[in-house]
Amino acid sequence: MAFISVKNLRKVYKIGNEKVYALKKIDLDIERGEICCILGTSGSGKSTLLNMLAGLEKPTRGDIFINGTNVAKLSEKKLARFRQENTGFIFQSYNLISQFNALENVGMPLMFKGMPRSKRDKISAKMLKLVGLGSRMKHRPNQMSGGQQQRVGIARAFVAKPNVVFADEPTGNLDTKTTDEVMRLMVRMCRKYNITLILVTHDLEIAGYSDRIVHIIDGEITSIEKNESVYSPEDDEKKESGPDNNTENSEVSEQ
């Protein structure tokens, strides 16, 4: 079985007496380490699919296996444990906690796991350096730009070394230049830790960063195309090749 396996998935909303089929019948396999983009217009059901993959919504019918666990059948408590161990989440509107600084925001998943503060601060600090925010650790979200906030969000999603990261329109609130930076960062992190990334977007440009693009229209998968000209972090290294080519650890230039 593939790392993520969606079988015969259906989601029906009842609005009054009318049934609305958000997802009709979805079958999808995603391999470990793959960057998979779910592409569709608004109302196509792409977000619903993501929500169900992440266990935020229960499907009407069908199964979702992630790493052998049927997410659709987990209880609330087991789901919390499953999220702690397997998933990271990147939001369109960043969703950082406003009274926490960057370091504390990144450490949240570790805190929920019950990791002591000193240990998680160390890991979070390392993560923040990795996303190029080594000098912004004590900043609150409202003291940072959108791009910086989303990088904190990315650090938070990857800090617990999950198996899969879900990203829901991660660049929806960012300008083109920042979008590019953020996307490269996400791809680099996934490749570095061999983490599966499921990316939901309506933007074909962003889809270009993924290995595979799943087109979804009206709750059905219409086509799955392999992306041949996929971006890889090595491209950056070739372009910026110089005496020090460890871009991963140096701070990414900020806007």
Binding site: E76, R81, F82, F91, F112
Partner: peptide
């Protein structure tokens, strides 16, 4: 957000 990030409901 806390729930999505894996916080137990008991907590």
């Amino acid at each position: 957000i806390m729930k999505v990030l894996g916080c137990f409901i008991g907590n």
